[in-house]
Design a protein around this nucleic acid. Structure first.
Lengths: 325, 325
DNA sequence: CTGTTAGCGCCTTCAT
DNA sequence: ATGAAGGCGCTAACAG
């Protein structure tokens, strides 16, 4: 490893001068700067981040805490964060909070012990991580008072609802996955808001919700809108098994636009997060916080994008599907 | 931040003694050790990893390079690596190599600049990352000469094949996703190896392969075995659209056991990687390398697990399905 | 414009 | 059993 000191000796100048030349502190004659830079390059000099960290108190590392790394959205978020961070010369250290609040706290502490400059947290559903005295950005959903940046889940729900309404559906089932999750609740709330009162809405949740589906459809529901793609796939399977055809008998929608949404038949109408923008905003904001700006508890709500595919279609007041048993 | 020196002053001893007491170097009287530990704890002392890193030349951070963080397996691998690493007091820094070999090299360099103690690399398909002079573990597949630890993809293929053979299928389609991928090739090779020569095998690849499916089935194929769950879902959709029913008309299998495999109908027979064990072995080996042992280019091949669900069934020489156009 | 000094927090001699 | 000193690589403050 080439160090600043070696270059200094090698060139007969002081270490400080090399440092100044390399970091462009401008207190060195420009041809000296050139020569030092060249020599450093030739020697393959790489600054020691450890030395710099010790000196400056900053590691250039951001910690990413996710409730569960197997969350289907994690890969995309992680990817974009890591790309944006790389652009800014920052690294991303990951930590899994293993689906429980205690582990979440421990994960945060591990990261803090490593001296991360800031924290990106996607909180456990239904928890507010004890905020330390460290720059932190929370990526959750607008209704979370601690939220900093998120997709506009409610807006996404509204888009789905308006799409379904525009297709003429008048009796709609809202299927949620988990009531504890703020994200899910915002999605459902958005869905409700997107329909006008004349439309018959039926809100059901979880496993037991799926069991009620068939009879609800027999009672006239013509669309099922769900709060996740995975749930939509399950519903699709369940309906198929009961002889109900999507979208002929009933329209169906998901949420998130996961990779398999286009592998289904029919391909799934859903709503996509602009993860790239969310990642960009999150890191930008975190960097500002790290630089000491005291930001208002702003709440960037990134619009979602409606992705219309083949699982939704016009409601044409046909006869009820025959249900197989 | 409490430092060693503060504790030392606070207790009227030297910094060296505090260090020795805390790191258990045993050169301190045991009651002094007790008192120092207690005081350190009360003061909320956390050792500065930066200081330690500078001193020791080790950061306690491992770099994880993935070809594409959106790879469906990434979440599970990342999760287990992060858990195992956390147990060993190590951190995991992620880097996306963005699907191309140049970026892979850059990603590795970024990690190296950060002073990671070792590298975990899941290589781009068809590339051998230029190995640096750093402890490195490659997670790919057995046929890669650089491979250190991997799932036994060929063995998984064989298990699938034997399962299909045991169900009485005699005309089988092998559908691969991408010939460039060593992993995929090993999977297909394993599948072939699992059938005896009397069985009629038809190997097809990619998009064009899917197009040939229907006619192949009309010609008597009764099972389609694929090299990924996503591919299996696509096939399922495609067949359904053509009036072919799984598993009644044709059995179908995937690979990897992704979360949606149980959301499908029928639920998908597939083969699962023991990611936990792979992660454990990978980190264990990497730690040994970091500690300076020169290990043989061993090749841990972790057995896969056959997951039999409802997409496969006995071949009972019934009549060909009628194909809708 | 350039050099010297000092110290970030830790740990490892070497002395006491 | 404990302490003093020095240095890992870097940079900020203060000379010169």
């Amino acid at each position: 490893m080439t160090t600043i000191k070696q270059i200094a000796i090698d060139m007969g100048v002081s270490a400080a001068t090399v440092s100044n030349a390399l970091t462009g502190k401008g207190r060195v004659s420009s041809d000296m700067v050139e020569r030092i830079k060249k020599r450093a390059h030739d020697l393959g000099y790489r600054p020691s981040l450890a030395g710099r960290a010790l000196r400056s108190g900053q590691t250039g590392i951001l910690g990413l805490v996710m409730p569960d790394l197997t969350n289907p959205l994690f890969p995309r978020i992680a990817q974009h964060l890591s790309l944006v961070a790389a652009d800014r010369q920052l690294g991303i250290l990951i930590a899994d909070s293993r689906g429980n609040p205690d582990e979440q706290t421990q994960a945060i502490n591990r990261l803090l012990d490593r001296g991360v400059d800031g924290l990106l947290i996607v909180p456990q559903k239904g928890t507010a991580p004890g905020l330390q005295n460290v720059p932190t950005v929370i990526i959750n959903t607008a209704s979370d008072p601690d939220n900093s940046v998120s997709a506009d889940h409610a807006g996404g729900g509204r888009m789905i609802a308006e799409h379904i309404a525009s297709l003429g559906h008048r009796h709609v089932i809202l299927l949620g996955e988990d009531r504890v999750s703020e994200v899910q609740r915002d999605r459902v709330a958005g869905m409700r808001a997107g329909f006008d009162p004349s439309i018959h809405l039926q809100e059901i949740w979880g496993e037991s919700g799926i069991d009620q589906l068939v009879s609800a459809i027999q009672n006239g529901a013509t669309a099922v809108i769900t709060t996740s793609d995975l749930l939509a796939l399950r519903v699709h399977s369940h309906l198929t098994r009961n002889g109900i055809v999507v979208p002929h008998d009933v329209s169906l929608t998901g949420f998130d636009d996961l990779p398999f949404a286009i592998a289904m038949h029919p391909t799934l109408t859903t709503v996509a997060q602009d993860v790239e923008q969310i990642a960009g905003l999150a890191i930008e904001r975190l960097i500002l916080e790290i630089q000491g700006e005291t930001l208002p508890a702003q709440n960037a709500n990134v619009a979602m994008r409606l992705v219309i595919r083949n699982s939704t279609t016009k409601q044409n007041s046909k006869t009820k599907p025959e249900i197989l048993q």
